[in-house]
Write a protein that binds this DNA or RNA. Structure first.
Lengths: 225, 225
DNA sequence: GCGGCGAATCAAGAAATCATCAACACCGGC
DNA sequence: GCCGGTGTTGATGATTTCTTGATTCGCCGC
């Protein structure tokens, strides 16, 4: 349960999403314009903000920048379909995650949980622990059962991201966007290869998984062994 | 843990940061304006001050100068995003460190710990020891396994900074800002060269590291051998 | 059980990053 | 003005890391 704020100009969508999230047990507030939303967000300080792109009165990046000047509240951006490029630009502007419209409300809800989980876990000094796996942001070191891993940058980023989203299935496209930060570039097989390497270093294989579980047709998720 | 004082005019941020630090076990006091803050800091003499830039009633540098006239308390400046220039000006005005807004509270907490560590160790003779490496702030001397090193000023500053942040990966850009104190200036390769020299004097090389470990694509970190 | 398709792995070329050498610029003291 | 010591920039070679292609493997539905 969390306090969620939604900025969305379309009344219909706003109603739908708000109802859905309320049914899921969240406390929901909404605004129809960027300026209104910004004002209320600062005043109410909700736990997470869902921000629609393409608002009439202000660009998403502008709003984000203004918001970031005064608050570090997690922001999930809702972007028009498949416009990866702008979504990634937004991530760089300080958004925490994004969903592609039209999105299922449950999908959004999963993101909200993930973002909140992330926020809380990082309170523990920047180190994440799951099962015997430990990932440390500051030193960029990771270990399994106390044994340090020798990871390349991408491998570490990949592992970190999956660990932050532990238990949640992540698609390869999403990994390309969030870990690789390249809107158009790479094929999804790049992700496969890196996952393979990561598995090898984690002492597991796809056939004999321990942490990295393949979800056929969807993606991967990092789980407790 | 520590007594932290926060001067920040935005009520929202103030609340967020204060709560976060309190949760981390600190004793937190706050003020909303420079004049108020200054008065209280002098009266309470906390262990560390977190100072927001862009206060309405006084410029950050002015406040710092006034404060420094009466107190040696460590100061961490919070600056608007990427405004390296002003942050560095502040460092020269007597600030001890800075964070870029929006910052994660854990990040700030890490800085607080670092500043306090610095403060305490300098009380204890100002010497940092890691592995066989010893760095003395007061006399600006360093040694490895008891053998003194002949370091140039920049080399010493570099080593000192890395030692203070031992175990943490530091980017070259960060080193440029904090050790070189140049906002935009130098290229990152300057850092490479100095690192190379430092390594040579430490009796190691990039291929055969002992203290200075390269983290490809990110930066360097100083580790226990 | 068979065919189709996504996934995993291996291998090799491409790209990015880094380390080091060497030459040059700067600064203050003499 | 000259000089030693320092810091910066350029060039180059080496290393690490990333991407892509080809192939095999394994899951899933029929």
């Amino acid at each position: 349960m969390a306090r969620v704020f939604i900025i969305e100009d379309d009344a219909e969508i706003r109603r739908l999403v708000a109802n859905g999230l309320a049914r899921a047990g969240h406390d929901v507030e909404t605004a129809a314009s960027a300026l209104d939303g910004l004002r209320q967000v600062v005043a109410d300080s909700p736990d997470v903000l869902v921000l629609d792109l393409g608002l009439p009165d202000m660009g998403g990046d502008e709003l984000l920048r203004m918001l970031r000047a005064v608050s570090q509240i997690p922001v999930i951006v809702a972007t028009a379909q498949d416009d990866d490029a702008s979504a990634i630009a937004l991530l760089d502007s300080g958004a925490d995650d994004y969903v592609v419209k039209p999105y299922a409300v449950e999908h959004l809800e999963a993101r909200i949980r993930a973002v909140l989980r992330r926020g809380h876990s990082s309170d523990a000094g920047g180190r994440l622990e799951i099962g015997g796996l430990s990932v440390d942001r500051a030193s960029r070191e990771a270990s399994v059962d106390g044994v340090a891993l020798e990871l390349t940058p991408k491998e570490f980023d990949l592992l970190l991201f999956l660990t932050e989203r532990a238990g949640e299935v992540v698609t390869k496209r999403e990994l390309l966007a969030q870990v690789w930060r390249e809107p158009y570039g790479g094929s999804e097989r790049t992700v496969d290869v890196h996952l393979s390497w990561l598995r090898k270093k984690l002492g597991e294989s796809a056939a004999e998984p321990r942490y990295l579980r393949t979800v056929h047709g969807v993606g991967v998720k990092l789980v407790e062994p």
